[in-house]
Amino acid sequence: MKLSLTQAINAGLRRALEDDPKVVLLGEDIGTLGGVFRVTDGLMKDFGSHRVIDTPLAESAIIGTAVGLAYRGFRPVCEIQFDGFIYPGFDQIVSQVAKLHARTRGAVRMPLTIRVPFGGGIGSPEHHSESPEAYFVHTSGLRVISPSNPQDAYTMLRQAIASDDPVLYFEPKRRYHAKDEVMLDAPLSTAPLMGAARVVAAGTDVTLVSYGPLVRTALDAASAAAAEGISIEVIDLRSLSPIDYLPVMESVRRTGRLVISHEAGQTLGLGAEIAATITERCFNYLEVAPVRVTGFDIPYPPSKVEKHHLPDLDRILDGVDRALGRPNSHSGMED
């Protein structure tokens, strides 16, 4: 069945609500309205306002009450309406959700799923286009994932809800309307693991690692490069915490060149961690230093100029050229 990414998430939520009576949804405007992106469309009607809960506008309380529900054995799925709205809930996520299992030496589980539409490219005002994933990747006790396509959105959401660990589920909102074939009945037992990265385009010259909204861009870059005879291997990380390094290492050991791209700012972003780890573990295979193609270390810019902040096909290819030492690449990055 062909589904958009929003429809796939909706189907995943529906399936979870059907399968497990302890699954409850909490969020702002998720019930009657069906969510500002219509991700939860129809769920309140079908499952009732006691399971699809329109909450007052307080993110700390959405997370904090979900902690209490989890204490009671529920499996809450929280929606944070936009990436930039998550910070009022940050303390509850970092100090409680992430730590309670360890704090109680395993007695209390926090099987929360926190859904966060993230990233730019939709022409929104401030606070609606951010990429805050690194904060959560840096926090032990959390799992962080980001699907790039409808099938993964469906499967990984079901895995996240089934996980006994808390999961931050970052939805690439600018890909919400991308449609693709989704197998709704494929058993989870045969699906790729939630924490597994995946090679989405095979290649031999450069390893290009990305996740979420930029996987589509990376694939397009690989196609464009192929026209010039450059073979890019694209890896969709899927899981940001933990990062599945095995396919990345395997690829880099063949290509000797690594490019990492994400919308989030560069400093201490995922690219920094991946570059450091691959340098530690594959140093003797690298032909050149890893290259990062990322957003800048700036507050998210106004939408008329966001295209200058967001890595696009050309900037990714410029990074690939740098990794290949091609003469037309942007120079001076080593200064």
């Binding site: 009450t65 209490g68 989890a70 054995g73």
Partner: peptide, 9 residues
């Protein structure tokens, strides 16, 4: 908040 969520449960 945890107590409130527990009570909602």
């Amino acid at each position: 908040l945890h107590a409130t969520g527990y009570a909602m449960g």
